[in-house]
Design a protein around this nucleic acid. Structure first.
Lengths: 296, 296
DNA sequence: AACAGTATAGAACGAACTTTTCATTCTATT
DNA sequence: AATAGAATGAAAAGTTCGTTCTATACTGTT
């Protein structure tokens, strides 16, 4: 009988104990695995629940390997067989058990709710998540369909799109630049590199669109660029937290976004979601027109 | 052939849909059940997870009944067989499941979004909002408290923090740079400006921390910088979509983030929420220490 | 007390599943 | 170019599992 455990014997024994250890094992040994075993490894990391619940045939089919490969994988990591490994994942699923029983569920919930107040890192995250979800839902409720369509239309009609967003708004502008460059639209990120912000924005002209993002406290430079764009005949779309903001006043169209905020640190979740909607809305319109043309 | 469905036929059909309805059914009909079926009913209410995960033989043994009794129980409540009923409990387990259920939701979101034809702009936004919410909840559920704390600690202990994220990951790095500069931490954004990416990253040394962000398809340059950081003795924190990614392997700590995605356009919502948590976690720790000092 | 109808236990069966085996393909080395 | 060794795919072998069937025990009625 061949011995499947090599120099990984001890560590494999550790991996037998819990899924977390196994995950670590998989990551550590990933590079040394054969191609098929890599497939299984990746799937195991991505879909641990499937490993625990589905049959080998199903898992194999989803990994695009033979059932026997799953067994080989399990043995490689020190298990007697695939079933043996599956037990581990199953137990894990149970240990995180969501609904042991009604009483238990309610008890756990109360415990979690009860010890709020102190701010451990994961409590912080939980708060942000809740705040960001609220911000997203607010965005969804308050954003008007016609405004979105006007936004997409502005992008579609622009010869070129200039993007500006400084300081905390910079990631929004950067995301828009990245995303729009995946379409055929000429896109320029006004980043003020080498103090050339004036020079960069002096390129704008009629037929162009400036998408300006700015939140309180508004950067003066952003307002200046909006001003310049308007004077040069470019259209302006604003993403801001108020229609009264300096960049909103000269704008053709203004999206008012209320992002979650926590101790001076503004989240950008809602703004980015809006940005994504605009870009994909535009990309979709492009696709449809192409299809329309090719069909016609 | 006898018809197991009696006057409970319609309600049994409802019970088929979800565990909650079945529980109600069981409670309602409990008194009219035979002794053995009562045993099974009680067990099903108390240990729904067992019903979903264990084999009939095991469940039967724990109920102190024959396996065939479980089958009769299932048929009494309108299922084709015990396996049919088990599926229900299994799905329930998965839907409340800790991690991959949300991953599943994100996946489903992506699928739905993928095969969609044309959408109005506000429908698009609604879908993004839902997808992003799912991604945020997934983040909250899968991120481990100890990992977050290690992340904050890594930042706190670093002499300087270097940030890298190219292409679609750039906004994350930019946001981290912006946010961290509002603390006292020395922060450098490795942006590869003027082709100086190698020069910029050669500044790193022992005691420094590199926070690298990269998503599929991974930028080779980002992996190179991680490599260089590790060789120069700097610690590495990775924000990525897989622990198997090139940047994750050399990392001290890796956060696995599943962002919503729509036709190649990855959202950054979850990644940014994680970034925010880390920074504010660090900022809070700073504040607490200052307060501690001033009181002493 | 006998009987009809129902419930239960246990064995038996067939289907599905995991594991093993073996032939073939691939890869690296000489 | 040849060959040894590893990796893989396909299928057989062996096991486990869910379901059904039947004999028996129970319950309530006449």
């Amino acid at each position: 009988m061949t011995e499947p455990r090599g120099r990984h014997a001890e560590s494999a024994m550790i991996a037998r104990k819990n899924v977390e250890a196994l995950r670590a094992q998989i990551v550590q040994r990933y590079e040394s695995l054969s191609p098929r075993l890599k497939q299984v490894a990746a799937y195991a990391l991505e879909h641990p629940n499937d490993i625990g619940l589905e049959t080998l045939a199903v898992i194999a089919e989803r990994c695009k390997v033979q059932p026997s490969t799953i067994v080989r994988f399990a043995k490689t990591f020190g298990y007697d067989g695939a079933s043996d490994m599956q037990k581990l994942f199953r137990d894990e699923l149970l240990s995180h058990a969501p609904s042991p029983s009604y009483a238990e569920r309610i008890r756990q919930f109360n415990e979690r709710a009860g010890d709020a107040g102190s701010h451990s890192a994961s409590e912080l995250m939980h708060e942000f998540v809740q705040g960001n979800i609220a911000a997203l839902q607010h965005l969804d409720q308050t954003t008007q369909q016609p405004e979105l369509e006007r936004g997409v239309k502005l992008i579609a009609e622009a010869q070129a799109v200039y993007l500006v967003g400084l300081r905390r708004s910079f990631p929004v502008a950067a995301y828009l630049a990245y995303a729009l460059r995946h379409t055929d639209k000429r896109t320029y990120l006004v980043d003020g590199l080498a103090g050339m912000i004036v020079e960069q924005s002096s390129m704008m002209g009629p037929g162009d669109l400036l998408i300006a993002t700015s939140f309180r406290p508004y950067a003066q430079q952003t307002a200046d660029i909006v001003e310049e764009a308007a004077e040069r005949g470019a259209k302006v779309m604003a993403i801001s937290d108020s229609r009264l903001s300096p960049i909103a006043r000269r704008a053709e169209l203004c999206f008012e976004v209320k992002d979650a905020e926590f101790r001076k640190f503004r989240s950008l979740t809602a703004s980015l979601c809006l940005a994504q909607t605009l870009v994909i809305g535009y990309a979709q319109q492009l696709t449809e027109r192409e299809n329309g043309k090719s069909r016609a």
